[in-house]
Simulated assay, not measured.
Amino acid sequence: MAAEAEGLNRLTRFAQRVPDGALIYDQGEVPRRIVVVLRGHLQFEVVGEDGVVTVVGGAGAGQMAGHIAAVNARPTSAAARASEETILLSIPLGSLAEAFKDAPGLAVQLAEALEAADRIGKSHTSNDAQRRAARDAVTIPVPAGVDEQTFFVDIADCPICDSAFEYVRIRTRGVRPAHRDSDLRVSYNGVDPTWYAVVVCPQCSFASYRDDFDAVTPGEHDRLVATTADRRAISAKAMTGARSAQDAEIALELAMRSYALRQPNERRQAVLLHRRAWLARAADDTVREMEWLERARDAYQSAYERDPEVDEDSALRAAYLIGDLTLRLGDPRAAGRWFEVCTKAGASEQSGLVRMARERLHDAREAAKAQADVAKAS
């Protein structure tokens, strides 16, 4: 529901014009104001598990942004950025009562948004009230010295040991891409956000991506509880603060062990294996990189061929990665067949992945020709 334009026009004292690309607030920031778009558009951005900043939504004329986080004094789940020149109202929390008098519709809109957010929050609350009540009331803090320009602190409840703990996440402004490899690995200036994609409980070393951290079945819970000592033996160090490359590798190992005890997910396994290859590449360890790439390629292929839940976009991405990893592993003819799958997939001509597949198909054909020439010469 958008606030009535007539009421908002009475609040021009809070208006400001922002240019295209301006950051309104960052992911993880606790806003001290409510933003309402008068003209233009805001896009909401998050740092995904692959380290890429992704647009996940937006707000147009008459819509609010940052209001749930501002009222509840909680970090925002996404950054807000102007996707064109935009005029917005920036209303400090201390001026809300005054603003509501001039624009009663805004008060109604905010109340409805808060009520909807409360319903969603209650639907995500665990049904096991006794387990929640028994958990440690003291949240385990992150190590001291967090760089607040790069990170923000979030809180998680471990579904395995019931510990509540803080952990750091990357702000969108902390992501500074420098270069992208053909297998979609991005090199960064400064912190690599992929090192922080896996959340690790500091108490029991359960590790998972954020999107399914809580999605643990009773059977999975029992298996993960029974293997806590095995995970703790890998590393007793808390992985909740700043991470080194070695920490990132340990986090991936813990995630692989944790997911091995959960419902089979070939796509997730492939991604974890691929991330291990990226770490080896960053360390200039070609032998280990090839080992991880081969395992990742096989897992992507298994997911492509067997996973009934793979949608068209995921299948296109998997086919491209199978082709790229196969080419990196030295089999250009097989790689070319996978790139051809991508180019014939019926995706939009503007698809960046299809364009990359065409380029890599050319590389594969050139490599196959070179191999044939060497074979003839010998």
Rank of each mutant, 00 (worst) to 15 (best):
A2S: 12
G7Y: 01
G7V: 07
L8A: 05
R13I: 15
Q16W: 04
A22F: 08
Q27H: 02
E29Q: 11
R33L: 07
R39V: 15
R39L: 09
G40S: 05
H41Q: 13
V46S: 06
G51E: 04
V53M: 03
G58V: 14
A65G: 14
T76H: 01
A79D: 11
L93G: 07
L106Y: 07
A113D: 13
A116S: 10
N127G: 15
D128K: 05
Q130A: 14
Q149M: 10
A156F: 03
C158P: 06
E166W: 02
E166A: 11
R171H: 08
G174R: 05
G174F: 04
P177T: 15
A178H: 10
L184K: 06
R185K: 09
V186Y: 05
N189Y: 11
P193K: 06
Y196F: 02
V199S: 02
Q203D: 12
D212Q: 02
E220A: 15
R232T: 15
A233I: 08
A236S: 12
G241A: 00
E253A: 03
L261K: 06
R262Y: 03
P264N: 03
P264I: 10
L272G: 00
L273H: 01
A280D: 09
A283W: 02
A283I: 10
R288P: 00
A299F: 09
Q301F: 07
A303Q: 04
E312Y: 04
D313K: 08
L316Y: 00
L325K: 04
T326F: 01
R328G: 10
R333T: 15
R337G: 07
G346P: 08
S348I: 13
R358K: 15
K376Y: 09
